[in-house]
Design a protein around this nucleic acid. Sequence first.
DNA 1: CGCAGTCTGTTGATACATCAACTTAATGGT
DNA 2: ACCATTAAGTTGATGTATCAACAGACTGCG
Lengths: 155, 155
Amino acid sequence: MDLQPRWLEPEEKAAWDSFIRMQETLIGRLSRHIQTDSGLSASDYLVLVSLTERGGGRMRFQDLANLVEWEKSRMSHQVTRMTKRGLVAKEECPDDGRGAFIVATPDGCRAIEDAAPLHVEHVRRLFIDALTPNQLTNLARISRRVLTHMENLPD
Amino acid sequence: MDLQPRWLEPEEKAAWDSFIRMQETLIGRLSRHIQTDSGLSASDYLVLVSLTERGGGRMRFQDLANLVEWEKSRMSHQVTRMTKRGLVAKEECPDDGRGAFIVATPDGCRAIEDAAPLHVEHVRRLFIDALTPNQLTNLARISRRVLTHMENLPD
DNA sequence: CGCAGTCTGTTGATACATCAACTTAATGGT
DNA sequence: ACCATTAAGTTGATGTATCAACAGACTGCG
């Protein structure tokens, strides 16, 4: 029954549009770089980084999914593909017959070790270098603020 | 030969991580809302908004693709799907035998008119409301700065 | 004119995302 | 011990993204 929707003010709309455009361009360019530099997709990269940095190369399926905030189904498909390419392997879980460990293979480790410095360089070049330290701090504060705001909101 | 990659400083990495997490959560929630509110995907929404707001409901294929900054192939597939669902239609171009006009159908117009106020409400609720006007202005400035920085960079 | 090169848009292949339905193993209450 | 419930992952269907190869219409220069 909202006959008069509250459209965004011009400055609000301009801010929203710039943010969206920036974020899309940035993520798009970074994904393409990861792919062409290393042959890894952005998803491969995220999974391998999480697995090696936070789990020492071996993690329970669900923990991995929680860490990157993915649905189990998405992770399952992703792990299936990565297994076929030899980047990770699945191992049975002794304590829980249903469970699975995901392990980074030597190939997977090598891939992420090669890819990470290149990726960081692109993040620096495209993003960090565009901003003053002060602006970066500001953006971090703003991001955290939006995040906690959303976490405190229903659904 | 970069034996000592320049990893991000802790504050830089923290800023980057917050930004990525925020942006992913925000876009994810908004897409899901568009979908469940209106049955449109985020792509459908973007195409219909661009088509109706900037082209009066009718636009050359390539212009539409340029406007939303999509590759022609992506747009072609998208338009094919939207045509099947009756949201847009293709028309021949009299001046150019190769060309095509994309037109929003009445169903498409109705869909976007219903969806837009709901979407704006979510943008407000999840994003705008999280920030002070000052912070929003700041974020807009930062976004534009990153954008122009990227535009001045090769590839 | 004639034809090489370019422009507009399509198509097919492959990878990825999302949802719902499913399988099997663990658990908890009686 | 039994059975209902829940938890851990998988699977299939559908929609979306990206890349490369393509078909046909335009253009301009010899």
